[in-house]
Amino acid sequence: MDESTPPPPDIDAYPPPPPPSAPTGTPTDFLKGVVGKKVIVRLTSGVDYRGVLSCLDGYMNIALEQTEEHVNGVVTNRYGDAFIRGNNVLYISAAEPL
């Protein structure tokens, strides 16, 4: 029956998908762009963690790979994987061009 087979939606009726937009610069855009890149994470204590950002969430909880712990510019520890609880994070800085 005709009623059981609705016509396919007219694709012209839908707006075109947005172009792959340049990052507008909000925190969310920054975080999307920086996943998989080398980053410097500084905690409020002043300790730095440098590594590859594998993932993170809205709390700024962070998972890093190939992590180096820096205290006063000196490497004090290396970790294969590290999880950082977001409340300690002062900033996340890109360590390679985005």
Partner: peptide
Amino acid sequence: LAQTLLNGN
């Protein structure tokens, strides 16, 4: 620092 996300807290 280059591009940086600063925690607002």
